Simulated assay, not measured.
Amino acid sequence: METYTVMREFADSWALAAMTVFFIGVILFAFRPGSRKASEEAAQIPLKDD
């Protein structure tokens, strides 16, 4: 098999599955319980006076 064909088959199957799992993990992490307070605190960091 050619290198391109092997890489294309990998990208169409396992790489797509891995990216999908990663995306779902990021979404779950962002919307987990208790993350609103941490997000609001992080958003205020640039506005704080030192």
Rank of each mutant, 00 (worst) to 15 (best):
W14F: 14
F29C: 08
F23K: 12
G34M: 01
M7K: 06
T3W: 04
D12Y: 03
I24A: 08
T5V: 12
A17S: 10
D50E: 14
I24G: 00
Q44V: 02
F22T: 12
A17G: 10
G34A: 01
R32I: 04
R32V: 01
A30K: 15
L47Q: 14
S35M: 11
E9Q: 11
A15H: 07
A17H: 14
K48Y: 11
E40K: 06
T3E: 08
A30G: 10
D12R: 08
L16P: 01
E40S: 05
L28M: 09
I27R: 07
L28T: 03
M19Y: 07
I24Q: 03
F10H: 11
A11W: 01
P33A: 00
E40V: 07
A38G: 15
P46D: 03
A30E: 12
W14M: 15
D49A: 14
K37W: 11
M7Y: 02
M7Q: 09
A18P: 00
S39F: 12
F10T: 09
A17V: 07
A30C: 14
L28Y: 12
W14I: 14
A43Y: 02
D49L: 12
M7T: 07
D49Y: 12
D50F: 11
M1I: 03
E9G: 05
R32W: 09
A15W: 07
L28W: 03
A42R: 15
A42G: 05
T3S: 04
E41A: 15
P46M: 00
F31I: 03
A38T: 15
L16E: 10
F22D: 01
W14S: 14
A43N: 06
M7E: 08
A30R: 08
Y4E: 13
I27P: 00
A18D: 04
R32S: 06
R8Y: 02
D12H: 09
V6G: 01
A15C: 09
S13I: 09
A42H: 02
V6H: 04
F29G: 05
P33E: 03
L47E: 11
S13F: 01
M7L: 09
